[in-house]
Simulated assay, not measured.
Amino acid sequence: MYRYVGPDELRALSGTGTAISTHAALVSWLDAADEREPDGTIPATFVVGVDGTLRLAPRSSEHVACVEGADVLAAGELFFDGAEVVGATNQSTGYCPEPASWPVVAEALDALGVSHPGEYTAAFTFRRCDACGTLNVVKDGWFVCGVDLPLT
């Protein structure tokens, strides 16, 4: 389970997430979506709540607003081609879910009868710098604080 660790001002945002409990609800949400990637896929911010419910919001939304500040089992982005998930990430700097959160996402999608890639297509590892407290993405297994980078 992941608690929100992002900025307090974002915690106050109103709920933008839609609980998706049926395949028909997913299709309805996708039909109403107005964001598209250049390749035509529909991007979405997602969370899986502690009750296992998938919630979706426009990609421009904050994860914490999608779930109204509650704890989550997974968070990130999904990319849909029709009602099929063709891409998935755990990119959420508000919740910092580990790549190991994928099975929860798969279970929520499977319950809806949604085809998916079987894993995050882009997985991120997040760490907080002990020196300055800044949240960073670990790249290539090498942790370097983005704030403490030398200026050239």
Score class of each variant (00 low, 15 high):
105 V>C: 06
2 Y>M: 02
77 E>Y: 06
149 L>S: 13
13 L>P: 00
42 I>M: 08
110 D>R: 10
42 I>C: 13
134 T>S: 08
125 T>S: 12
30 L>A: 10
117 P>I: 05
42 I>A: 05
146 G>E: 06
142 W>Q: 08
13 L>Y: 09
16 T>S: 15
7 P>F: 02
104 V>D: 15
16 T>F: 00
106 A>H: 08
149 L>I: 15
20 I>P: 00
60 S>H: 14
43 P>I: 06
10 L>T: 12
5 V>Q: 12
151 L>T: 14
90 N>Y: 06
17 G>V: 00
142 W>M: 07
70 A>S: 12
151 L>M: 06
79 F>Y: 15
136 N>H: 05
148 D>P: 00
113 G>H: 10
96 C>Y: 07
147 V>R: 14
55 R>N: 04
10 L>Y: 13
70 A>V: 05
40 G>K: 04
107 E>Y: 00
46 F>C: 02
24 A>S: 14
62 E>V: 02
40 G>A: 15
37 E>A: 12
100 A>P: 01
41 T>M: 06
94 G>N: 08
96 C>H: 12
62 E>M: 09
76 G>V: 01
124 F>W: 11
122 A>H: 11
27 V>D: 10
68 E>L: 09
5 V>G: 06
143 F>P: 07
89 T>L: 02
78 L>P: 08
55 R>P: 00
88 A>I: 07
96 C>V: 08
48 V>T: 01
69 G>H: 03
118 G>V: 09
33 A>L: 07
70 A>K: 15
139 K>D: 12
82 G>R: 09
7 P>D: 07
25 A>E: 11
60 S>P: 00
65 A>N: 03
95 Y>I: 06
136 N>F: 11
1 M>C: 06
68 E>Y: 02
67 V>W: 01
103 P>Y: 09
18 T>M: 01
51 D>L: 03
25 A>F: 06
139 K>V: 15
117 P>L: 08
4 Y>E: 02
107 E>Q: 15
128 R>W: 04
105 V>I: 09
106 A>V: 14
152 T>F: 05
5 V>C: 12
83 A>R: 05
13 L>I: 00
68 E>P: 00
29 W>I: 05
135 L>G: 13
43 P>M: 03
25 A>T: 09
53 T>F: 06
152 T>C: 10
18 T>H: 11
29 W>A: 10
63 H>A: 11
33 A>N: 04
22 T>C: 03
47 V>G: 00
135 L>S: 08
56 L>I: 09
55 R>V: 03
128 R>Y: 07
6 G>R: 04
25 A>D: 13
33 A>I: 03
143 F>I: 04
152 T>L: 11
10 L>W: 12
134 T>I: 08
2 Y>T: 04
80 F>S: 07
87 G>C: 11
143 F>W: 13
83 A>W: 03
35 E>W: 02
112 L>Q: 05
151 L>I: 13
70 A>L: 12
5 V>S: 05
